[in-house]
Design a protein around this nucleic acid. Structure first.
Lengths: 154, 154
DNA sequence: TTTGAAATTCTCCTAAA
DNA sequence: TTTAGGAGAATTTCAAA
């Protein structure tokens, strides 16, 4: 699965990370090749799984989601069954937008988005009382300092 | 700036969060209106700042960025000058992909992406010795459990 | 006011050289 | 890679709800 990309492929990835809605013609112009091979490269990147999708970015606050919080969660047991059960619950909680399993002290980190602090607190109660959840430590975000695309290019 | 959106606008946002490269015609079909008003709505969402951009999602691991870590950073001083200085440094560190200022114990949370653990460790040394940085606590991610768009819709 | 239908213009994609 | 042809989309206009 490891990719063998040349400089133009990297440029394509950089441009599409910066603007996922750019047209193929404009993309080709920016990376310095003609449109047909550019489109072929994009297709290849998509088919090989390097480009996994495209997403519109939205302003949560403008939509009334004023609260962004992180929660560090520790489970009482790291048995595979307990981990799987928790992962399944995470998928069902729409307030949880991102979740990573961690090594070290906490077992999971959750990034949560909610309309109000109250809504978030209600979720934390549900989270805390979820089976096998032992500890929950929350951090309220004051502001977003940086939100760059997944991979640093250039 | 607070938006006054109807059900169709929300559907548009949902679809564009799921697939930012969808054509306007297909988008219109999915949300149940014709193309012209659909395009007008998308433009309005963009111009009002609700849609802030579009981004291709890429598979970091396939590109050789095998390490994703979170770092909690505490500063010795929360004076505005020190916060600003740290924020400025964060912008310059390409390894830091996301950063939020927090309330509570830590002052910042950083999401970092690096090709190797060694590269990440080198960064942590730089981070730890940065001016006014008092504490750094890192968590290595084992796997991504969930990565949903910014706002829950539907 | 906003929609939807139609028509035009434009741009992109694909195939062939 | 470039070109050309054809397809489909974006955008404007206009009529109607």
């Amino acid at each position: 699965m490891k990719a063998n990309l040349d400089a133009i492929d990297w440029k394509i990835l950089k441009e599409l990370q910066d603007d996922g809605r750019i047209t193929n013609v404009e993309l080709a112009r920016r990376v310095g090749i003609s449109a047909p091979p550019c489109l072929r490269r994009v297709r290849a990147l998509e088919e090989s799984g390097i480009i996994t999708g495209y997403r519109a970015l939205v302003d949560e606050k403008a939509l009334g989601f004023d609260v962004t919080m992180f929660a560090m969660v520790g489970l009482a047991s790291q048995a595979e069954a307990d981990l799987s059960a928790f992962v399944a619950r995470v998928q069902g909680w729409s307030i949880v937008r991102e979740c990573y399993m961690l090594s070290g002290e906490a077992d999971f980190i959750l990034k949560c988005v909610a309309p109000t602090l109250r809504a978030f607190q209600a979720f934390i109660e549900e989270l805390t009382s979820a089976s096998s959840v032992e500890s929950v430590k929350t951090s309220l975000t004051i502001r977003r300092v940086k939100d760059a695309p997944a991979v640093p290019i250039g």
